[in-house]
Every structure is written in structure tokens, then in C-alpha cells.
């Protein structure tokens, strides 16, 4: 019998190896884009040195919403009801402001049944990462169109989509999310950097990640297939991310690269592939998204970033200690307060 040589696993800054960020075995279809996204989340969390115990995974209903079971098993997770994960996330984050909330939703879960909660989450700028694993179809109910399916795209059964898609990124920017981008489950490097920036950001991060459904929407005529994405993906930037704890000084040309300093001091670097694009200009970013849509391009990259707007937790002026664990001495006013209240009512 041979023994495999033991090697010390590489540890991150909180002393954990990448294994500590893994979850259960996936039950999604082989080749599903969602599995690739789970892998990217594991890598990004590991590399950023996020303690898994600090993370709260939240999801709605659908294939994408099942995926939190397949990564970060040491994090609490909540599989909520269809389209209503934003409200659960809001309650959880406000109860414990120290959590890092990671929401995983799908295009059906967000853009149809969950639209009401989605838009209100975006406008509150609650600190959380909200990922839409976007494949244009309802997988778990066997392949009906979702509201992000492109006009004219075709189902396996031959049914043509005759309604225009909802651009969740344009909506998120309009409504008040402060870090918004689109990526592709097959673009390892881009998604990886975007997720790391998302972890460093303090506000609502909305990432729409096109994630092909190999079973119901990966055929000729689909606009959410691997092939279609490879042919039509138009990255706006080359994205790199320098975490605050990696003190690397790299020269960059301010003419060709936008550098954004994140809340924790990390730096998000966007080397422009499109000369005029300014990811801090809210109005123009929305315009560009609509132009891309009309041109049949799938624009990817960081569309909008804003590190100035106060988060919902700042707006609410919440005390530093999590509300969840405030002691009785803080949450129950004294006898004199009840006396005063009674006196006012006499």
C-alpha cells in the first residue's frame, strides 16, 4: 500500500484552509453554471480571509437557491420562501450588523415573484451581497421562461419568448444599489475579482451572473447558453482587486485604469476596455446598459460603484453591538421610565 504524501494545506489570514469553506456535495446538474459560481464564492471568501462563522447565506427558492448548501458549510444558512429572501436578509442583517450577508437568488426568484422585495432591498442599500444566478429559465419546474429571458430567445420546445427582458442591473443602479455588475459563470477571473470587491463593499452589492442551465437553456436559439455568452460577452474592464491586507504597490496608468478605494481600504482596479466608461456615473452607466441591450451585446464588468452613500445600518443609527445580543439592562428601560409614561396618561 502506498501512502499519499502529506502536505500542509495553505492557510489564509484567519488560519483556515480552502477546505473549511466547502459545503455539501452539489445536487445540481453536471456542468450547471451555478456550481462554478459556488466555487468562485469559496475561493473569494477563502482568499479574503472571511471567517465562515460570520457569514449568513440566504436564498429563496429555485436551483440557484439550493446552492448555498454546496458551499461554506460552517456558515449559517437560510433557505427562505420563493422571492422573499430580501426581507429575511434585511431582518437578519439588522438583528446582527456584524454578519456578512450573502444572498443567492435566481432570475425567477428575483425578477418575477421576488420583484417587490428585490427593488426595495436595492433602495435601502442594506449591506449585503446579492447574487442573481441568471439562466433565463425556471430550472426546478422544468424550463419555463423567466423575466430575464431575451426577446426572441427560444426554449428547447421551440417556444419563442415574446416579451422584453428585465435588466436587473439597470434596475439595481436606478434604485440605489451601490456596487452593481454583471459577470459570467464561465469567466473565472472576472467573477473572482468582482466577488472579492463585493466582500469588501459596505452597501448593497448586486451581481447578475449569467449562469447557463445545461439541461433547459443551453441550446441553439438560447441567449443564456455557454456558446452565446462566449460569442457575445463584452467585458467593460479588466478587473483586479487588491485586498487591504496585501500591501502590493502596483503602478497603474490613471488614464487607462480606474481605481476605487473600498470601505476597508482595499482597492478595486478597473482597466478600461471602453475608454469613456465611468463606473461612478450613475446616469451614464444606466444609459450604457440600455445601449448594450439594443446592440445585442452582453455587457459584463463593474457597471457602477459608489462608496460614499451611507448604508441602511448607518441610516438607522444602529448601536455597534448586534441588536440580537443586547442585554436586558439595555433593552428594558428602568422603572422610572414606566412611572413617567404612566404619569403622562393620568
Amino acid at each position: 500500500m502506498s501512502t499519499t504524501p502529506t502536505s500542509t494545506p495553505k492557510l489564509n489570514r484567519v488560519g483556515l484552509s480552502v477546505v473549511d469553506y466547502r459545503g455539501g456535495k452539489t445536487t445540481l446538474c453536471a456542468g450547471c453554471g451555478h456550481n462554478a459560481i459556488s466555487e468562485r464564492i469559496i475561493d473569494a471568501m477563502y482568499e479574503m480571509g472571511v471567517a465562515p462563522e460570520r457569514v449568513a447565506k440566504l436564498s429563496g427558492i429555485g436551483c440557484s437557491s439550493k446552492s448555498p448548501a454546496y458551499f461554506m458549510g460552517r456558515s449559517h444558512s437560510f433557505n427562505a420562501v420563493h422571492g422573499r429572501m430580501p426581507s429575511v436578509a434585511t431582518g437578519a442583517m439588522l438583528a446582527n450588523r456584524n454578519l456578512l450577508a450573502l444572498g443567492v437568488s435566481g432570475d425567477g426568484d428575483s425578477a418575477s415573484i421576488g420583484m417587490g422585495q428585490f427593488v426595495h432591498l436595492m433602495r435601502r442599500n442594506l449591506p449585503m451581497i446579492y447574487i442573481i444566478e441568471d439562466n433565463g429559465v425556471y430550472g426546478l419546474t422544468k424550463g419555463q421562461f423567466s423575466a430575464t429571458a431575451d426577446l426572441g430567445s427560444k426554449l428547447k420546445t421551440g417556444v419563442i419568448n415574446d416579451l422584453p427582458p428585465i435588466d436587473t442591473c439597470a434596475m439595481a443602479i436606478t434604485l440605489g444599489a451601490t456596487l452593481v455588475g454583471r459577470s459570467f459563470s464561465g469567466d473565472k477571473k472576472q467573477l473572482h475579482s468582482m466577488l472579492k470587491a463585493a466582500i469588501a463593499h459596505q452597501g448593497t452589492v448586486m451581481l447578475d451572473v449569467v449562469s447557463p442551465c445545461v439541461t433547459f437553456n443551453d441550446h441553439e436559439g438560447s441567449t443564456k447558453s455557454y456558446k452565446y455568452m462566449k460569442d457575445h460577452d463584452e467585458p467593460l474592464q479588466e478587473i483586479s482587486f487588491v485586498p487591504v491586507f496585501e500591501d502590493i504597490a502596483v503602478e497603474y496608468d490613471p488614464g487607462s485604469t480606474v481605481e476605487v478605494t473600498m470601505h476597508d481600504g482595499s482597492r478595486l482596479r478597473l482597466r478600461k476596455l471602453e475608454e469613456d466608461y465611468d463606473p461612478t456615473d450613475r446616469i451614464k452607466s444606466i444609459t450604457r446598459l440600455h445601449e448594450a441591450h439594443d446592440a445585442g451585446e452582453v455587457l459584463t464588468g463593474v457597471f457602477y460603484v459608489n462608496t460614499q452613500t451611507p448604508s441602511f445600518i448607518d441610516l438607522l443609527n444602529l448601536t455597534e453591538q448586534p441588536l440580537a445580543t443586547l442585554p436586558e439592562s439595555v433593552v428594558r428601560p428602568g422603572r422610572e421610565v414606566l412611572e413617567q409614561a404612566m404619569e403622562e396618561l393620568r
Binding site: 427562505a80 429575511v88 431582518g91 437578519a92 442583517m93 439588522l94 438583528a95 454578519l99
Partner: peptide, 10 residues
């Protein structure tokens, strides 16, 4: 939903 999320988180 918010009550459920907040109650879950303590």
C-alpha cells in the same frame, strides 16, 4: 419576512 430573518438571527 423581516421578522423571520431578525428572529432567526436572534
Amino acid at each position: 419576512g423581516m421578522v423571520v430573518g431578525a428572529g432567526w438571527a436572534g
